[in-house]
Design a protein around this nucleic acid. Structure first.
Lengths: 132, 132
DNA sequence: TTTTCATATTCGTTATTACGAATATAATAA
DNA sequence: TTATTATATTCGTAATAACGAATATGAAAA
């Protein structure tokens, strides 16, 4: 019986183990909210060193929870296993974790550049200051 | 931002960590299916050493996922945080883990004794053999 | 009041994971 | 080419978790 049970719950336990880390949870939630996101963007939002994030991304990638796509020098990540979304949702419900509004802070990837310049224009109209 | 996020997901990650173990998952599923269960029963079902199970029960208890109640020499455990049930359900969905029918095998706790003797009676009527 | 039974706890070792630092690679620009 | 930028990987150490073995505790039986 013993090994039978171990075998049965091995995969589930493994999946839970992979997502049982605050940084990986944050990455997954960001990807859920943003469809696709480049690494520099994740860096800007989360404020962790690139190499550190990359390690967590590797973990998520190797466990097939996310997929990556290179475009020039940038690499874009997206959710691959959408099944984790309800797991995380139920978990947050259970721990009454509030929602975070993930906003990028200072990202220069092509996509952000265009967004920022758009933002700059509209902010200039209202006399706002950017980047500092 | 960094510590903010870490803090936010700390509890969720912690909860997931606690349930990210095959034996603890199995215990939780048994408790879900059986309302209340004594340790000897868990031993019989799972086939692990008592001390080993007790360690996992301690982990679940300390993290307030289960509660315990002593009755004579037996200790009965039950689910305390029902919120983990949907988490586990979604996880199993995600890993396509099949359902296990948890059946006790050879347990002598008072409750089982009475069940077994009832069972023996009805089985004797049908000429079945028990325990061997 | 000693023994027995059910269960819990502690301790030590091994295995696994986290994470910083350094380095590698892939794409583009100079 | 060489430099630069974005990202990945590897490596070492520290922290944590798993688990076996031994032992402790609490309740009841003898």
């Amino acid at each position: 019986m013993t090994n039978h049970i171990r075998e049965t719950y091995k995969d589930s336990a493994g999946l839970l183990r992979v997502i049982s880390h605050p940084v990986r949870l944050a990455i997954l939630e960001i990807l859920e909210a943003n469809n696709e996101m480049c690494v520099c963007h994740l860096e800007a939002i989360l404020g962790y060193r690139q190499a550190y994030l990359s390690q967590h991304l590797m973990c998520l990638r190797e466990n097939e929870l996310v997929s990556d796509r290179r475009e020039g020098r940038n690499v874009y990540y997206r959710m691959k296993e959408k099944g984790v979304i309800p797991i995380i949702k139920e978990t947050k419900k259970c721990t009454s974790t509030k929602k975070i509004d993930f906003q990028a802070i200072d990202c220069n990837c092509p996509e952000c550049e265009s967004k920022i310049s758009k933002q700059e224009k509209s902010d200039q109209h209202r006399g706002k200051k950017i980047n500092g």
